[in-house]
């Protein structure tokens, strides 16, 4: 299939991503090697915080029933807060890679620039811990955050969940769980290039098969690790793959953003369209010529700056920043 061309301003960033981050595209046989590589790229939080006027603290909170405790890191303005907006962050990495400090620089930026309190969650990875371990860990962390909002200086009515890629998948899934379990109120869900559909069969997945980053093959490897033999079958629950949900009503407002040059493009459009059809709120941005994660890799590009500005605008609207 003909692929959609990349923005020329992003080509250097694409090459960097392919060389330095993916190395070899993720496949079932190289998950552990990829994990080690990914870990080496994630700087310790002390180094990322540097002189920024924030305080951070690691806490261990109760995990899902019968499962280990969950590690969280709380990042707050050094000056303290009361009634601040809260951002619950779920890292990406295909459900198989990464830790809660991946992308923490952008989270620290939000704390410094907008006075939010951020909580980033460690969750168990596949294939060692397949579904539902990851999503239940994330949900447990959210329950703890909402329950301790006052002591964290957070307004419990102003908590958003956010994540990119697998973090977007888990953010969408946590939003479904919170709705169905009458759990914490979520003010919004920020889904950046979310993995939503284990079937991996939309036209965009075929356009970006061995092309770009987080291609169809990588997506296949991630879903297969997370769901095992159930992947692609009729038995995949919505909390495992949110595209499988038959009811998308009553969810928190969604912000869905991704590049036009992504395998995940069509499934993400479909998710937004189905939220609207149910009378729900969603905002959808598909950026021309952009690839999976390009705004983080090439933050100076015109399209990346526009991407960040649109996301921040939505956060201002939802969180009254």
């Amino acid at each position: 299939m003909t692929t959609v061309p990349f923005d020329p301003e992003l080509l250097a960033g694409l090459a960097f991503f392919q060389r330095e981050i993916e190395g070899t595209p993720l496949r079932t046989g190289n998950i552990h090697a990829s994990r080690a590589r990914f870990a080496a790229l994630t700087a310790p939080i002390e180094a990322v915080v540097g002189d920024a006027p924030v305080a951070f603290e690691h806490v261990s909170v109760p995990g899902p029933a019968g499962a280990p405790d969950v590690a969280l890191t709380v990042i707050r303005p050094a000056a303290g807060t009361s009634g601040a907006a809260g951002v619950y962050n779920i890292h990406g990495g295909g459900t198989v890679l990464g830790n809660r400090f991946f992308g923490v620089g952008e989270l620290i930026d939000l704390v410094v620039r907008h006075g939010v309190v951020a909580v980033t969650v460690e969750y168990r990875l596949a294939p060692e811990d397949p579904y539902p371990a990851g999503v239940e860990d994330c949900y447990a962390g959210l329950v703890w955050m909402a329950g301790h909002a006052a002591e964290l200086g957070i307004d419990p009515a102003r908590i958003v969940v956010q994540g990119a890629s697998a973090g977007g998948l888990l953010s969408a899934a946590v939003s479904l769980l919170a709705r169905d379990r009458s759990g914490p109120a979520i003010a919004g869900q920020i889904l950046v290039s979310p993995m939503l559909d284990d079937r991996n069969d939309a036209p965009s997945t075929h356009q970006f098969d061995d092309v770009g980053v987080w291609d169809r093959g990588a997506n296949h490897a991630g879903w297969t690790a997370y769901l095992g033999d159930a992947r692609g079958s009729a038995d995949v629950p919505a909390y495992a793959a949110p595209a499988r949900a038959t009811d998308l009503s009553g969810l928190p407002p969604a912000f869905i953003e991704l590049g036009a040059c992504e395998a995940l493009r069509d499934e993400d459009i479909s998710y937004a369209s189905r939220i609207w059809a149910a009378g729900g709120q969603a905002e959808l941005h598909i950026w021309q010529g952009a690839f999976h994660g390009s705004n983080g890799i090439a933050p100076g590009a015109e399209v990346s700056r526009a991407t960040d500005a649109a996301r921040l605008s939505w956060m201002r609207r939802i969180l009254a920043l």
Binding site: M1, W276, L284, I286, Q288
Partner: peptide, 23 residues
């Protein structure tokens, strides 16, 4: 919906499009 569909069909052909649906 018709506008989202138009963008989706442009991409499916390998064309360039940018889509914004404002909440």
């Amino acid at each position: 919906d018709e506008d989202v569909d138009y963008a989706t069909r442009i991409w499916a052909t390998g064309g360039q499009a940018e889509l914004h649906v404002w909440s």
